[in-house]
């Protein structure tokens, strides 16, 4: 089966649903997620623990654990239709059409193989280069991700590297076959702040130079503002607001996105008291009816308890709220 694919399209997710369990134990973890990205573009998917942001990436990469059921109208990643692909086809897609960078490089790298061997694996699988050509490509990749003296480092084992270097090695592995799309799930959360700044800068320039699209999953609004072109905010398995990152972070329209921003302490200025959001995110086993944010929302009305607000376009944004913070008169930049 062939489907029409836009050459500039890096990722299309339409109406993605993930559920586990049967009958009365059925839990819907993702409820109708739609996202799209073009090549060279960075979209940040931001939310708190359990909001479904990692699940979205795992589902799109077809890396869901057994027992999780996936449904989607369309799932095209890096030009490849992954929704209907089976095991062998997925092996040909993963690493070639998209790469995946995980949070914790120490547990995602194989401690028994050198980083050179690990970066070479996707090259061997997909590009069928000979030994010498593979080795020289690995050295180029290590250079591209900022390893000084790359030719002396590819025989190092993960434990011989610092946290930042391990994450650079994992990025080299993810981009080894020059994929048009990259998933990065909390890629800097385990790193110190100075190393984080370096790795974020690296990811941003790799996307720009290679025309690679990136879905960056993070809980940190600062990381969003540092690298993302657009942002999608998730709450309890649904997207509640999308739009240009700078505009959404400066003045969110969804009350949850606004509350997240206000709860954040700042390094640039001290406030007397943080505006904490009361309560806690709901468990998937007890998602509220209607808008899932309504029990914690100061703007909630009767309608919010019974009806689910759809993501409605509003200027350059989409917002899923019956009582959004601002009716917008946004113009394109």
């Amino acid at each position: 089966m062939t489907i029409p694919v836009d050459l500039h399209e890096a990722l299309t997710i339409e109406d993605l649903r993930v559920g586990i369990g049967r009958g009365r134990d059925r839990v819907e973890l993702l409820d109708g997620i739609s996202l799209s990205l073009r090549r060279g573009e960075i979209l940040a998917l931001v939310g708190e623990s359990g909001s479904g942001k990692s699940m979205t990436a795992l589902a799109a990469a077809r890396l869901l654990p057994p027992g999780a059921e996936l449904g989607a109208r369309r799932l095209v990643v890096g030009g490849a239709d992954v929704a209907s692909a089976g095991g062998a086809a997925l092996d040909r897609i993963r690493g070639k059409s998209f790469g995946f960078v995980f949070q914790e490089p120490m547990t995602s790298l194989n401690p028994l193989l050198t980083i050179g061997e690990q970066i070479a694996e996707p090259i061997r699988l997909h590009l069928h280069l000979d030994r010498a050509a593979t080795r020289s490509r690995v050295i180029d990749l290590l250079g591209a991700v900022g390893f000084p003296a790359a030719s002396t480092r590819l025989d190092d084992y993960p434990h011989q590297l610092s946290g930042g270097q391990r994450q650079r090695a994992m990025i080299a592995m993810a981009i080894a076959c020059n994929p048009p799309f990259l998933f990065a799930d909390e890629p800097t959360t385990a790193l110190d702040v100075t190393t984080q700044a370096q790795v974020l800068t690296l990811l941003r320039s790799l996307c720009r130079e290679r025309g690679m699209g990136m879905l960056l999953i993070t809980h940190d609004l600062g990381v969003v503002s540092a690298v993302a072109d657009r942002v999608a905010v998730m709450y309890a398995g649904r997207i509640v607001e999308t739009g240009p990152a700078a505009a959404v972070l400066a003045a969110p329209h969804h009350p949850y996105a606004d509350a997240l921003r206000r709860a954040l302490p700042r390094v640039s200025a001290k406030v007397a008291r943080l505006e904490a959001l009361e309560g806690q995110p709901p468990s998937p086993r007890a998602f509220p009816t209607g808008c899932r944010f309504h029990p914690r929302c100061a703007r909630a009305t009767a309608r919010c308890r019974t009806s689910v607000p759809a993501l409605v376009p509003s200027g350059l944004r989409t917002v899923a709220c019956f009582n959004p913070i601002a009716e917008t008169k946004e113009t394109a930049p």
């Binding site: 110190d192 702040v193 100075t194 984080q196 700044a197 974020l200 800068t201 600062g222 400066a250 390094v267």
Partner: peptide, 23 residues
């Protein structure tokens, strides 16, 4: 100064160039 500059924060540009290497 390096530490403060490296903190990503909405509304502030990220300044990664100000520090070399890792501890």
């Amino acid at each position: 100064r390096t530490l403060i500059a490296a903190v990503p924060e909405p509304g502030r540009p990220l300044q990664a160039g100000s520090v070399r290497g890792e501890p």
